[in-house]
Every structure is written in C-alpha cells, then in structure tokens.
Computed example of a mutant assay.
Amino acid sequence: MATKRLCMVGAGRVGRLHTRSITEHVGHRAEVTAICDPSREIAAELAADYGVGLVCATLAEALERGTYDGVVITTPTFTHHPLALTAIRAGLHVHLEKPMAMNLVECAEISGAAEAAGIALQLGFMRRFDSDFVAGAELLRSGEIGDPMIIKSLTHGPGLPPAWANDIRTSNGMIAEVNSHDLDTISWYAGSEPVDIHTRVANFKGAQRGVVTEHFYDTLVATVTFESGAIATVAGVCPADYGYDARVEVTCTAGMVQVGHTGPGGPASIVAGTALRGEAVYRSWRDRFADAYVREMVAFVDAMDGAPLRVGAADGTRAVGLVLAGTLSMLEGRTVTVAEVQAAGFVPAWQTRTGQ
C-alpha cells in the first residue's frame, strides 16, 4: 500500500511525541509531511528535527499547500471541534487527542461527520494501547475473576498544565484534561454504561503556584455508578510533585486485578522527589506510556488501511458526558446523572462565558 501522508496539527509535547513515533516506528508505512502550529517557530523546530518539509500556521493553510491521507490533532480542547470537522470534510482520517470536544453537541457533530464521510476517527486514549491495561481488560472480559464490583482508578500528574487547561471555560478543568483517561478506563473495565457521578474537589497548591482562575482545583475524587451495579472511584492530583502515577484496581465477584505501578520498581511510599523504597518514580506520562504511544500511532495507520478502531467516537463521547456531569456535580455539590447532560436542552453554562 502507498505510504500514508499525515499532517500533524499541534507542535507541542504530544505533537512532538506522535511525530517521533510515526517517523521512528511507522516510517515504512506513513510519514508526517506537514506540521501546523500557530507558533511557526515551534513548528519549524519540530519539522527540522524530523525532516518534515512543510510548516504551516493553520490546518487550512496546510490543506491549501499539500495533500494528505490523515491528520493527528494535538491542540487545546476548545479547538478540537472546528479542526476535526475541517479535516473530516476534507476526507481525511483523524486521530483526535482527548478530550474529544468541549461538549456533547460538538461530539455529535464530529461523530456524525466522520460516519457520513466514512473515515476512521481514533481517540487519543493511549491506555487502550498499553500492554498492562489491555491485559487487565482481557482478564475482566474472560470471566475468570467474575464481574466487576468496585473499580478504583487514579491519575496523578507532575507540574501544572497550560493556563488554558486551568480554566473550566476553555477546558472543563482537570477532570477533562487529566482524568479523562480514568473516565475512559473505568467504563472500559466495567463493560457497562455510566449512570451518574458525584465529584468533590479541593485546591491545595493553586495559590502558591500563582493560579487564581475561578473554579481551579488540583485535587479530585469522583464516584461513578454503572448500569451493571459496579461502583467506581476516580482520583486525580495535578500537580503531584513526586512524579507521574497511573493505576487501576478492580475487585470482582471471584477475584481482583491491579494494573500499573508508580515506577518500574513500584515504590511503596514516597515523598516529593524521593522514593523511600523501590525504584525511581515515573517522571512523565511520556515515560510511563512510551510503548503505548507508539502502538497508538501504529493502530491509527492500521485503521486508515481499514482495520477496526480500538477506541473511537462513542468512547470519546462517553468520557465527555462524564466530564460534563462531573463538572456540574462539582459546581452544584450534588450527584448528577449522565442523562441530565445528554438531554437535548442541556447547555454547559460555564462554557457560555468563554470568548472562544
């Protein structure tokens, strides 16, 4: 088959990671032929590092100047909807980083356009491509340890996110930017649809880190119930100064499964920057999921060739529904059903104030 031509939209950390994965691991089947970023300087630097010939400020410019088979979108959440629709309407396959979009109306428009165009739309939930997380899902599906009863998932990330991600008006907050992965994982592992969510948050470090954005929080615990009766908890901390931490534990009717460690050696207890027992903690999500990110790009190229998607629009939409319900729960201090935010008349009021 002909080599797939890919346009990388976004030249930040994730764009750089995907460009490297494609160049170094999928180069015999696909190549990045253009890089787009509002900062031409950043885009040009990435292009020079990986021998990409075309640098553009926008996807529209790239479409005018080149021909592609697919795009990889790694830009801020509030840009996903217009960029995805532009790519889909140009007939291109799309890898779209999480969260899928800002709200369910946007998700529906992206999903509908992709289905009508007959293109592959892969969502950037890299845990779906991690060997340990996949093995856990396969064990749960086998029935060997019975049915899931309690699912506990956490993501703790080092460092503050970009300023736009601290603002629920432009990102839906940490539950979207950090814990979308957990919301997808608990749904994947439960094998059932979520019913409701109750979210509690706290802000321990914002003031000392100079964050004054309204409704900013750096600590989250959410409880989710599923149609199957399973109960899940999601915990998030960002910034977590000790490193990057992503784990899940499932207690089932006939056993249990744990996935993930705080580091290659799995220290039992730690303080900021120091492991008291065991090996060093993962410093970054790039370290913890290095292999998964490569497999993710391999799977995208496979999907462009007609292979079934491992994670797609329905999964992205489900996670956004939980993000919206979780944010509403945080703002109103109550349990919120997913049906509330799926209702035709629901509008995320916190997003109406954004100037985007």
Rank of each mutant, 00 (worst) to 15 (best):
G266I: 01
A117D: 04
R13Q: 15
A254S: 12
L121T: 04
D167H: 14
R141I: 01
R310E: 11
T317K: 15
L220I: 11
R295N: 13
I151A: 09
S180F: 03
E45R: 15
G321S: 08
G273H: 07
D132K: 08
A117T: 11
M174E: 06
R334Q: 09
L54C: 02
P161D: 07
H18K: 11
T213F: 03
P267L: 02
F204K: 13
C252R: 08
Y242Q: 14
A272Y: 00
A272T: 15
D241G: 10
G10L: 05
G15L: 08
E332Q: 12
D287E: 15
V211Y: 10
T219F: 05
W164A: 08
A165S: 14
C238Y: 04
I175Q: 11
G157W: 08
N203P: 05
T225A: 09
A163W: 07
R334Y: 05
A292S: 13
C107F: 04
D291S: 12
V257N: 04
P82L: 00
A313Q: 08
G159S: 11
M100P: 02
Y293F: 12
T67P: 00
E193Y: 09
E279K: 10
D315A: 12
I151N: 05
V336A: 07
P158W: 01
A272Q: 11
T155P: 00
P348G: 05
V211A: 09
A87R: 01
A117V: 05
L17I: 09
A60Y: 00
A202I: 03
E41G: 06
I88V: 13
A190D: 13
R295F: 03
G173P: 10
A113V: 03
L140Q: 04
V338R: 11
G191E: 06
A280Q: 15
Y189F: 15
P82M: 04
E340M: 05
V301K: 03
P148L: 03
V105N: 10
H95G: 03
D305S: 06
F129D: 02
V9Y: 02
A165H: 10
V281L: 11
D167W: 07
D167Q: 11
G229R: 06
A84I: 03
T262R: 10
V201W: 02
A254I: 00
E31D: 13
E64F: 00
F216V: 07
H215S: 13
L83K: 02
R353H: 14
I168Q: 11
L85Y: 04
